[in-house]
């Protein structure tokens, strides 16, 4: 069983390369999230909004990024997850997700997290504080 608490400062928890973004990914996310803003699914609407083509929901990428931590969610939980959306994600983009441990403060493990496209542009960047404290268990 994998464990997160053995990770050393500066180590990378995971790096996941997603399959190229497919239109269907965004249609599914629209349905599952209830965010039907058409700039994410309909080309004409994206163009009307001044975009070259449809763009991924920022929350789709943010949701994906957290999955680096999912295998460890029985050891603790994500206490803080903050993100700045810096660039657009287009259909066909190949996104790589990364999380690196930068600091440890008792029960808190602080990670720099990012999503980077095939051109090495950070489209999304932020921080996750993973709490390994056990006292909240019900």
């Amino acid at each position: 069983m994998s464990t997160i608490s053995n990770l050393e400062k500066g180590e990378t928890l995971g790096s996941i390369q997603l399959d190229p973004v497919h239109r269907l990914d965004l249609i599914k996310y629209a349905g599952a999230s209830g965010d039907f803003n058409p700039i994410h699914t309909i080309d004409e609407e994206a163009k009307k909004a001044g975009l070259p083509q449809i763009i991924a929901h920022g929350m789709w990428t943010m949701g994906n990024l957290a999955k680096i931590f999912s295998p460890y969610m029985n050891e603790g939980f994500i206490q803080d997850y903050s993100i700045r959306f810096r660039g657009m994600v287009f259909v066909g983009d190949v996104i790589t997700l990364k999380a690196t441990l930068t600091e440890r403060e008792s029960d808190n493990m602080i990670f720099d997290v990012s999503a980077v496209n095939q051109n090495k542009v950070e489209v999304l960047k932020g921080q996750i504080i993973f709490k390994t404290d056990h006292k909240f268990i019900i």
């Binding site: 803003n37 058409p38 700039i39 609407e45 909004a49 920022g58 929350m59 943010m62 969610m73 939980f77 994500i78 206490q79 803080d80 997850y81 903050s82 993100i83 700045r84 959306f85 932020g126 909240f136 019900i138």
Partner: peptide, 17 residues
């Protein structure tokens, strides 16, 4: 409006899952 908004930043804080 439903169009033309840009999501700039997003953060979550959890007390428990």
């Amino acid at each position: 409006p439903t169009k033309g908004l840009i999501h700039g930043e997003q953060s979550f804080h959890y007390y428990r899952p």
